[in-house]
Write a protein that binds this DNA or RNA. Structure first.
Length: 278
DNA sequence: ACGAGGTCCTGCGAGC
DNA sequence: TGCTCGCAGGACCTCG
């Protein structure tokens, strides 16, 4: 489930390979992941187009093309973007959604088992409105603890839901919301606007720490996620709460609790360490 | 503004 | 053994 660290890993792996390459003979195996663009126009625009820049915004891979378009790929739950050095096997092709030659016998392949991912082709204006709808990047040096705290003050929703709200904060999903809240010792169900300034500050620090650590570990592979070179990430070995419900809290030994009360998503936390105090 | 719930999609594992 | 069903949860939607 690619969140910010996973997409950042993909982008860092792919950038040196893709920058400057020309896309050739793109093929689309499923059209249900396209938004606001017809398959024929997508393929026509991609064919022969050069990749100028490989970037990330929130949980999305952004390929800036010579034509001025941006190919934006949201991997959703199970999407992966990988460069293959040889022809795809039948198994690899099975979930391929979009593939294109990039020269030197290599192919860029977007595969997505559940196809909850989305592909956009945006011109400049489309890109501006697209990125304007997404919140600040948590690792942006210009985004600081006080700006983060200001975001949290604006809503009464549960803090965990706020962390995952892409309009308020870019790139954080279920795994890293759980981990950051644990590290900051904050109850995930706490009202966002009731966090004390020092709690918001601590949460900001924890969030940045866990995102940086996950990038260093090349992301978390639970099932489908792969790096840009097709490897599994390793942060799953470092997770402290996500997926560890019923096991001992790594800090105090209490059994970790799992609930689905917040946004119907799996929330795992420690009753003792993340005690509610407001 | 907010919570609840539905929608998309497929693989997987539990339970019968 | 083989079936059904619930779950995984990102992003978006509607409804009250």
């Amino acid at each position: 489930m690619p969140e910010l660290p996973e997409v950042e890993t993909i982008v860092r792996d792919l950038r040196p390979i893709l920058a400057g390459r020309r896309l050739r003979h793109p093929t689309l195996h499923h059209t249900d992941i396209l938004r606001r663009v017809r398959p024929s126009r997508l393929l026509r625009t991609l064919d022969g187009n050069r990749i100028m820049e490989v970037g990330r915004r929130a949980k999305h891979v952004v390929l800036r093309l010579e034509s001025g378009h941006r190919l934006v790929i949201q991997p959703g739950m199970t999407g992966t973007l990988v460069v293959h050095h040889r022809r795809l096997t039948a198994v690899q092709r099975r979930y391929a959604v979009l593939e294109a030659g990039i020269g030197r016998g290599e192919r860029l392949v977007y595969r997505d088992v559940r196809r909850l991912g989305v592909i956009w082709l945006l011109d400049d204006r489309g890109w501006r409105s697209y990125t304007a709808r997404i919140g600040p990047e948590p690792l942006d040096p210009d985004f600081d603890a006080s700006a983060f705290a200001a975001q949290l003050r604006g809503t009464r929703q549960a803090i965990k839901k706020v962390l995952m709200d892409q309009r308020r904060l870019a790139g954080v999903g279920n795994i890293y919301a759980n981990e950051a809240l644990f590290r900051a010792r904050i109850d995930p169900s706490r009202r966002s606007d009731r966090l004390r300034p020092q709690e918001a500050h601590a949460l900001f620090g924890s969030l940045r720490e866990v995102l940086q650590a996950a990038i260093a570990a090349k992301g978390t592979t639970v099932r489908d996620y792969r790096t840009g070179t097709g490897q599994a990430g390793s942060f799953q070995d470092i997770l402290q709460v996500y997926g560890r419900g019923g096991l001992a809290c790594p800090r105090c030994g209490t059994r970790l609790a799992t609930t689905h009360a917040i946004d119907a998503r799996q929330t795992t936390f420690c009753w003792r360490c993340q005690r509610s105090s407001g």
